[in-house]
Design a protein around this nucleic acid. Structure first.
Lengths: 244, 244
DNA sequence: GATTATAATATTGTATACAATTTGGCACGA
DNA sequence: TCGTGCCAAATTGTATACAATATTATAATC
């Protein structure tokens, strides 16, 4: 959440090391990777020795993650990784649609030509990866494209809010393990809003991005409501292989 | 930020008391009331004895407020109350416009007749308070109306995000001490979107709310860029008297 | 006199010890 | 057999003590 702010500070001296800050990033990664599954309890002492730190910075990290909505704190009863609820994800997507639209509109207004050129290159890469069937790479490029669009909006508040919701949605995606039917459709939608971007059509780009988000929401929530298929590989650390 | 979540939990036993949680609310109120002015340093020990708690819960509270963007943490250099930057407020309002639009649209779709009736009563109260020149009361009712609209949207994610931004905007408002020319205009805009609400016209209501937010943004930012007039009363605890 | 190096002070970051609350089990009784 | 009350263990919440870093003051040098 405060990653934006630190990036904005141009001269970050040498290191940015406080244990609780590292703990936040570490725990957030563990939650997003599914290493700490939703609903699982988070015993403090166990995590402490696992991370090699004391309880004090760990607890500070848990408070931050609670504020981000990734864990829930129950007084005197410990912390649990926030469960992924289909209704909540639906609500998040409703807001996300509006944010995507705003990002698209502002990106047209504020993005530089160099950035639009870069966006075009990324889109080309996306198409290539789709044709080659490289799902993991496609998925990563997809996220980078959307992040690039948000960055082009030149709005730190939007960027931070977007990042928070994107994280929760990412978690839902990797859980739902959805994708198959949606891949081709998603690429087509990307093609659509890229055309609008090339014309710098702010309204159209925003509308298409919002629509893209809405359709993604339908697919994710549908997959989320169905029993998740058992994964083949190891549970922790598997690359999410779903299409945006 | 997590107020929503706790409200969602139907049966909250009896008390909800942890010192760090109380400290968060206390500090947040102090910041929003201007008791801790933007840019001021936040020495831990001093606040500890002021709140009658130890450093541990206070520090946890500071981490949460940092995650909310109300304070900035500089490693080994202490915490400062986040300064109110006109550019940042402008960015926040850009997002707020989109959220207001979304709230208006969803409220039309999901609000109950009883809620719309209540909204109507609140609006009547607003008009009365405007005519009577009761600024502080008007300002409170104004906030309650917008909160009511957001609540009618039935979207916890929207509600939480909205609350976070509203807090920062509130802080900017009380600092800028703007209002005079905008009061009548604001009431007229309220009248406008209330008409749309009575027709349950989701698109129109959302559009008018977004426009209302945008116009408020212009007034606030303009006031923020001008040197704030010296206040008459005491600096801390004065009721903000600006119009929405 | 200005500037830089150095040391003293103060403040923050972390670890550990203690207090409070919840949870699970067990005995007791209906 | 089920329910209630109580006790013990475990875990969380808080306070304090210690370590590390930054800030300020002082002094030495140019």
């Amino acid at each position: 959440m405060d990653r934006i702010k630190t990036m904005k500070a141009a001269a970050r001296p040498i290191r940015r090391a406080t244990l609780h800050h590292s703990a936040v990033e570490e725990l957030r990664a563990m939650i997003l990777d599914g290493e700490l599954p939703p609903g699982s309890r988070v015993p403090e002492v166990q995590l402490c020795e696992q991370l090699g730190i004391s309880r004090t910075p760990l607890r500070e990290a848990l408070r931050v993650l609670s504020s981000e909505g990734l864990v829930e704190l129950r007084p005197h009863r410990g912390a649990v990784v926030a469960p992924v609820d289909a209704n909540e994800i639906g609500a998040i997507f409703e807001v996300m649609d509006a944010l995507e639209r705003l990002a698209g509109t502002l990106a047209c207004r504020n993005g530089s030509d160099a950035e639009f050129a870069k966006l075009d290159r990324m889109h080309g890469q996306l198409v290539t990866q789709h044709e080659a069937g490289e799902r993991a790479a496609y998925f990563l490029t997809n996220r980078q494209i959307h992040a690039q669009i948000v960055a082009m909006a030149r709005n730190p508040a939007l960027e931070a809010t977007y990042a928070g919701f994107a994280a929760k949605i990412l978690r839902a995606r990797s859980l739902a393990n959805y994708d198959t039917g949606r891949w081709q459709e998603s690429v087509d939608e990307h093609e659509g809003f890229m055309k609008a971007f090339r014309r710098r059509d702010a309204e159209e780009a925003g509308a298409l991005l919002a629509d893209h988000s809405r359709r993604t929401a339908v697919a994710v929530i549908q997959a989320l409501r169905q029993p998740a298929e058992p994964e083949e590989g190891t549970a922790a650390g598997t690359e999410p292989a779903n299409a945006g």
